[in-house]
Simulated scan of single mutants.
Amino acid sequence: MSEVWMNERETRAWVAFQRMRIEVNEVLARTLTRDFGLTEADFVILLRLYNIPGLRFRARDLAAALDWERSRLSRQISRMESRGTVARAPSEGDARGYDVVLTDAGRAAFQAAWPTYVQGIRHCFADVLSPTQLDSLIDIAETIDTHFTAEHYPGGLIDTAVGGGVHTTSAGIEPCGTTDSLESAS
């Protein structure tokens, strides 16, 4: 069996992409933990719930939207319940399932962390790039996303959050609207 190699440009691009992604996420996650006592997983779930009308999400749909196994979500929700940031509630029309509900404490935790999170994104990412570079990155990401969806989800990604104004990604960290103010995200 012959080995397949990437050329130098492909290797440099892939390594640079991975390093950038890891470094930015590491800084953001460390800030969330240090300043707000939130893990990255906590924040992703709080963001999803904050942006959903009714502040609740059916657990199985939340797991699918995050591309998590249901068992991973269940363990994470148990940890967050113990801290009071989310609660479980019966799902309407699904006796075996449950909804994950954002509590007042969870909403307050998200609202406190969001401005610092956005500031971190700007500091480590957006402010470092020129408008032309940002446009190029958007084009690159959209090209890869289009390919990914066509090749791996030919019927399209199903995300019940889209109807609630949340843009779907595997990380699930896009706010509603085009601004970063909390008012636009509610």
Rank of each mutant, 00 (worst) to 15 (best):
I45C: 11
A63E: 00
A95P: 10
I22G: 05
G97V: 12
G84H: 02
V100E: 01
S82C: 05
G84A: 05
T103I: 05
R60G: 01
Y50R: 09
D61M: 09
P90N: 09
E81N: 05
S74F: 10
T85C: 09
L46S: 11
D42K: 00
R70A: 06
S91I: 07
Q76R: 11
A63F: 00
L66C: 05
A64L: 04
D104L: 09
T33N: 12
E40F: 02
L66I: 03
I45Q: 09
A95K: 10
R30Q: 03
R75C: 07
D99M: 12
Y98H: 11
R48E: 04
R60L: 06
A59C: 01
M80T: 13
D99A: 15
E92Q: 14
L32I: 13
V27C: 00
L62F: 02
A87K: 13
E81T: 07
L102V: 11
P53Q: 01
R48T: 07
R58P: 13
V24E: 07
R30G: 02
M80R: 13
G37M: 02
R79G: 13
F36W: 05
F36Q: 06
R88V: 05
A63K: 00
A64V: 02
L49N: 09
L38Y: 02
G54I: 04
S78Q: 15
D99C: 14
D42C: 00
L49C: 08
W68N: 14
T85P: 08
W68Y: 15
G37Q: 03
E26K: 05
R56P: 10
A87Q: 15
T39E: 02
L66E: 03
G93K: 07
L55M: 04
E40Y: 03
D94R: 01
L49P: 08
A63L: 00
L46P: 12
G97R: 12
A65R: 06
V101F: 04
E92D: 15
S91K: 08
S78Y: 12
Y98N: 08
L102C: 11
F43L: 02
P53C: 01
V27G: 01
L55E: 08
S74Y: 09
S78E: 15
Q76S: 10
R48K: 15
